[in-house]
Amino acid sequence: MLKVRAAVKVGVEQTEIQEFDRPVIPPEAGLLRVESSGVGGSDPELYRKPDHAPIIMGHENVGTIEELGPVAAARWGVRQGDRVALHEYLPCWHCEWCMKGDFRLCMEVDFFNVKDRLNTLRFGMSSCNIEPHLWGAMPSTCTCRRTRSCTRFRKICRPSGRPWPCLSAMVCSGPALMVVRVQCKTVLIFGPGQQGLGCTLAAKAAGSICVILVGMTRDRARLDLALRMGADHVIDAQEEDLHQRVMALTGGRGVDVVVDTTGDPTGQVVNDAVALAAKGAYLSLNGLEQHVPIKEIKKRYLTVRAPRGRSYGAVELALRYIGSGKYPINEVCSHDYGLDQVHDAILATAGRGVSGAIHVTVNPWR
């Protein structure tokens, strides 16, 4: 029996390499040769989570179809040897959200609503004790198969000729496209990490009139990169008066869209977001609920929504932007690790061990 090597989380911030039998592929399933797996912003949090093991982490999956059953080929419209990107959700396909094509909100896979997160099938979060075991993007191959009534139809996308690490960046651009698909608006983005830079690209590509990215002094290199990604202005909040600068750039009106990618636990970013918003603005806030000033939101007639994953349509659009060649996505892909270095890759994404990490990837064949 052929074996597949995988990096398995076995405890809190503990990973070991294990081997699994290469699964037999039925007619309705496929096998993906993983060429690159992006480490998402949520992965360090999952890596620290107790009682959530053993799992093969990684949900930003791109690679080549190594084996494909005839039913899967007809259903997905792909062939063996095609380069593809996988959407991480494995939905039920019969609830109202699946019928709308918004698989991230399916009650079978919604991370915030399922009763048993470890045993709910979703790439990068499910127990590898569940056959065929390879529910993640950090083995050398992973399975794309039918589960319940799910056939993963319409959920495999065809990337263009970009390098593999660039293609895995489409997942971090996807959430950005969910919140800043706006035209003729002024957009303020907090945080120049992979999500913030993805928002910058998405906002400019969508036709925003003015895109402003906020960071700190230590983020100078990222702020400079943001200008190459389409930002009209960048602000070092430690060196400049944030409120004064934004109001000067908007003629005292404030901004139409605010996106917080920092998850700031102090509430300062939330307060700044509300204070800098124009009346009737749209806010995507990622802070703690006790910091949300409801009274000010009411006074300014603001719309607030928290970020929640990515839709199929957003990922498709991100792939088009990345494939267009208009943006320096390669500069966002800062660090690439081998399968034996998954622990280091996840810590790097959390800002530990190395400096300057933005979008970190794992190449199982390195």
Rank of each mutant, 00 (worst) to 15 (best):
R146Q: 15
R245S: 07
I294R: 13
H133M: 03
E16M: 08
E296L: 14
A85W: 00
T147K: 07
P91G: 04
R158F: 13
R5T: 09
C92N: 13
V214A: 06
E96R: 15
E35K: 15
D43L: 02
R310C: 08
C199L: 04
Y301T: 10
F153R: 14
A85M: 13
L118Y: 12
K155M: 13
G313L: 04
R218Q: 13
D51Q: 13
L249S: 02
H243E: 13
G309M: 09
V255G: 08
V269A: 10
V360T: 12
V214R: 08
L285Q: 11
E67V: 04
G124F: 00
H335N: 13
G230I: 06
V304D: 12
A6T: 12
S284H: 09
Y89H: 14
G338F: 03
M178D: 14
V246C: 01
I65K: 07
S168W: 01
Y321H: 15
L134W: 01
Q244S: 15
P23D: 08
N113C: 04
E35A: 11
M99W: 11
V214L: 07
C172R: 06
H133Q: 08
T262C: 11
D241R: 11
C128M: 03
E96W: 10
D340N: 14
I209M: 05
R308E: 11
I235V: 13
V332P: 06
R146H: 13
A278R: 14
G356S: 08
A314Q: 01
I235F: 00
E296D: 15
R253E: 02
L31N: 04
R75F: 01
T250A: 02
T143H: 12
G215I: 07
C210V: 01
V179L: 06
F20P: 00
E108P: 00
S173D: 10
M178Y: 09
G280S: 07
A275H: 06
S42G: 02
S334T: 15
D264K: 06
C157K: 08
